[in-house]
Design a protein around this nucleic acid. Structure first.
Lengths: 188, 188
DNA sequence: ACGATACGAGACGGTTCCGTATCGAAAAGA
DNA sequence: TCTTTTCGATACGGAACCGTCTCGTATCGT
């Protein structure tokens, strides 16, 4: 083939993501099933990855979306954009796969650290927007930035991961969350 | 033994919860392991439950805590209490076990419905407190109750399930969440 | 004290997956 | 074109569990 970059690698990783998206959990996922789905011999997989763990890491890396770049007009609009990006990825399969990873994150400190490494850039972005809001006076001066981030991202992720509140519409939710947290529940 | 109520049942269910709390996922969990841990023959398990699924259902039922009864003094204090109860259970093992169930909830509509059935009473409670707040004027008249519940419970559950924000102290978090959402992020 | 019952332990055949090894066909390089 | 890799497929032994079944023992009601 003139296509240099290893058709086999691609097929194996695609098969892995497909199987995960179809409902396989991480333990259920077997090398044999991946090989069959990819139309590849098992040996071909073992020739490239030492085991399931390493293959999964490579496969999941592919799902990681691009860190969004906030427009920078108003703090409110930037927050809506960032909250809308929470738990959303380029690949539609990610929505099915992400919840499967929750148990893994809590299983070992190593996985926890890896997870934190992945989401830290996005968190950093939101922290900066919040600080900007404090400086500009759009947000209250005594704002606790860490708590504020929890208030903004928690509800969105909860909804994306397990539709915690069945009545909520996911599309308008980012706006509702941001405005709700901005204005508060007390009468003004 | 004078203790009537089936020592074996108890031992089997306890062993199941123990193994889950120690890091077994639901698929990894084997009847053989449960039997060994409980000091029980496999047949004894199959004599009481048709399979792993049914046993798990019974075991998890044991974890479900009591629905808290809000004191009813101020809406703010009631909310702090309810938010503090989100994702908390009588059994300390529940903290380790709950995240393992996230993938199951998304796997089948049946599991999703079961999950909703379990949390609905708690959600109802919070809805009532919020409505009371609207009537009494403690909360704004145009409050969207469903969104408000997401704002309050989402951050707490996120933190309990996967320590999403490593810097946050879980003990004071309910207060911080409630006050944050009550007052909002805009300057007053 | 004795028969009925429930128990633990574990053997059993069957299934699935592991990771390795082999082999002929196809591709790539010289 | 001929050699050298790389590939797919598949066989293999080993491991873990499945759900059933059979032991010999302990417990319990009467």
């Amino acid at each position: 083939m003139s296509d240099m970059t290893s058709t086999a690698d691609e097929a194996i990783i695609e098969a892995t993501l497909d199987l995960l998206a179809e409902g396989s959990t991480i333990e259920t996922l077997s090398i044999e099933a991946i090989a069959a789905r990819a139309g590849v011999g098992k040996a071909t997989i073992y020739r490239r990855w030492p085991g399931k763990e390493a293959l999964l890491l490579d496969a999941l890396r592919r799902l990681k979306g691009i860190v969004p770049q906030p427009a920078g007009h108003s703090v409110r609009d930037d927050l809506v954009q960032l909250v809308g990006a929470v738990g959303r990825h380029i690949d539609p399969r990610a929505a099915k796969i992400m919840p499967c990873l929750v148990p893994e994150v809590n299983r070992s400190p190593e996985n926890y650290r890896l997870y934190q490494t992945i989401i830290e850039p996005r968190r950093h972005l939101m922290r900066e927007v919040l600080r900007r809001g404090v400086r500009s006076g759009e947000l209250r001066a005594d704002l606790d930035v860490e708590v504020a981030m929890a208030l903004l991202t928690g509800p969105m992720l909860m909804q994306r991961m397990l539709r915690w509140h069945p009545e909520l519409d996911e599309r308008v939710l980012p706006e509702r969350i941001v405005d709700g947290v901005l204005e508060g529940m007390r009468p003004r």
